[in-house]
Amino acid sequence: MRILKFSGLALAASGAAASPTVGQAADLTVSVEIPKLNVAEYHRPYVALWIEKPDQTAVRTLAVWYDTKLKANEGATWLKDMRTWWRRAGRSLNLPADGVSGPTKAPGRHVVSFSGGQLAGLAPGDYALSVEAAREVGGREVLRVPFSWPPRGAKTATATGSTELGAVSVTVKP
């Protein structure tokens, strides 16, 4: 227990992937498709990925893709447009955060993997990986994909968006 905790803290501080500790080899891979939209004015969406419990309380924010390049962190002005994530998790976070913040992504399929410290301390149980996309001069969409932790075997679950998100899949592996 102490080892797990220590490892989690160390990773949170460094924000980098470290060598897996015993019991932390499991990983969670998320594939997010950002649809190509035929609109007059297109801006890449802001996207948040977070883990929540079945009652929708947020457990951990894994990634926030927003405009990180603007001066004086001005891109943070529109983080609240990801309303669901903002209310459940974002408003209590300090962004930018190492290992969580990242630039917005172009239309297409994006695959991100989380393991080790990013998932350290995640109590065994049922969860959902939530994905929310909010686009300037566009809409907003939230998808939830259930998963169980720790994984007992490789498992994939999917959901498909209708407006701001395409296919989202979540794969957990022991």
Binding site: N73, E74, A76, T77, W78, L79, K80, G90, R91
Partner: peptide, 8 residues
């Protein structure tokens, strides 16, 4: 009513 960013 709900804002984000440094000094909205």
């Amino acid at each position: 009513t709900v804002l984000s960013g440094a000094e909205p």
